[in-house]
Computed example of a mutant assay.
Amino acid sequence: MRVREVHLVDGAPIRFRDRLLGYLALTKPRVIELLLVTTIPAMLLAGRGTVDLPLILNTLFGGLLAAAGANTLNCVADADIDKVMKRTERRPLARATVPRSHALVFGLTLSVGSFFWLWWTTNLLSAHLAAATIAFYVLVYTLLLKRRTSQNVVWGGAAGCMPVMIGWSAVTDTIGWQALVMFAIIFFWTPPHTWALAMKYKDDYRAAGVPMLPVVATELQVTKQILIYTWLTVIATLALAPAAGWLYGSVAALAGAWFLIMAHRLHAGVRRGNPVKPLRLFLQSNNYLALVFVALAVDSALALPTLFS
């Protein structure tokens, strides 16, 4: 007589709907949204004045598969610390909603699928960039850097910069200086964005043994680093202005001033010993990056005159 295996979560059987939602949660949909937001403007800038909708959709789908695969494999590698941190204790593997072995197969399948999809619908360069991104995020950042150095997000953030490179290469089959500048924008933006969140949840990271900068440094040191990287972010956005039109240049300057004011206020508050709300900078940094890249997308689609023309 066969005995039916029943999986439990918090003492209750796992429903099919919960299992399905668990697989979806492994991909971290909110993170994917931000990655896709940066891909479209890169493609529109590469084909300035031309909107190739089929190519954009195919590249977005390939990028979605790559990001979903990388995020799932990240969850597999971090399953042990996700159980310890309050911020992540409800993730599928922490709650055993999805078996870890199934998540591993799911992540690998998505990753391989992204490579062949991009190769088939765009070009081999884009496919290789996607594969390199997944490998770097999982092997270098998650397994090597994250638990060993306080500079983990500085170098690990390079994986989050790759969608602009993939988008640019999908259109041009090359990597131009504009793509490198867009890479730099996201690279410099990642530390202040992530460290602001880590300031709020530093006890979580300390409990998990992850040496995020706010865990091993004072708040004053952290906010000083946030300020430096915020300045570098804004400078990088302005460096892209010669390749774009007046709309992008104007928005980049105004949004950059706003972003800098927020970072300076956070640093000044800590320096004066006042209560601060770092999570506010984390949330507004998302809006800043989205605003800059949406302006770039509109500017590029309309092929507006440049500030220097």
Rank of each mutant, 00 (worst) to 15 (best):
A217C: 11
A217R: 15
K200E: 12
L227N: 12
L232R: 10
D204W: 08
W189V: 10
E219L: 09
T237F: 07
A198M: 14
F187I: 06
G245R: 02
G245A: 03
K224A: 13
L238R: 11
Q221I: 01
P191M: 09
S250K: 01
S250L: 15
F187W: 14
L197Q: 04
L247G: 10
A217T: 00
G245L: 05
M212C: 12
P242K: 11
L247S: 09
L197I: 14
D204T: 09
D204G: 13
A236Q: 02
T233K: 04
D204N: 11
I235P: 10
P211V: 12
A236Y: 06
L227D: 05
A243V: 03
G245H: 05
L220C: 00
P192G: 10
T233V: 04
S250T: 15
Y205L: 13
T194S: 15
M212Q: 05
L240S: 07
P242F: 10
P214M: 01
M212H: 05
T233Y: 06
A243L: 04
P211M: 11
A196S: 15
W231D: 03
T190K: 09
T223W: 03
Q225P: 00
D204M: 10
Y205A: 13
A198E: 01
L247D: 06
P192M: 09
T230G: 12
T218W: 02
V216C: 01
A239R: 00
Y201L: 15
A207M: 09
Q225V: 04
F187C: 07
I235Q: 01
L197V: 05
A217E: 07
D204R: 09
L240H: 03
P191G: 10
A239K: 00
W246M: 14
A207T: 01
Q225M: 10
L197G: 09
F187A: 12
P211K: 04
D203P: 08
A236K: 06
L240F: 14
A217Y: 00
G209I: 07
W246K: 05
T237N: 06
A217N: 02
G245Y: 05
G245F: 02
V216T: 15
W189K: 11
A241D: 10
P242T: 10
Q221G: 09
K224M: 01
P211W: 05
P191H: 07
P242I: 12
R206S: 14
T218Y: 04
K224D: 13
W189D: 10
L238I: 12
P192L: 06
T223A: 04
T233L: 09
L247P: 13
K224E: 13
Y229V: 08
L213T: 00
T223N: 08
W189Q: 08
W195A: 08
K224V: 01
W246P: 14
L220N: 07
E219W: 02
L238P: 07
H193D: 04
I235F: 15
L247I: 13
H193R: 07
A244L: 15
L220D: 13
A207H: 00
P214G: 02
Q225I: 02
L220W: 00
I228N: 06
L197E: 03
I226C: 13
Y248K: 04
Y229F: 15
W195V: 01
Y205I: 13
A236C: 07
I226F: 06
A217S: 14
I235Y: 10
P191I: 04
T233A: 08
A207P: 10
A196G: 14
V210W: 05
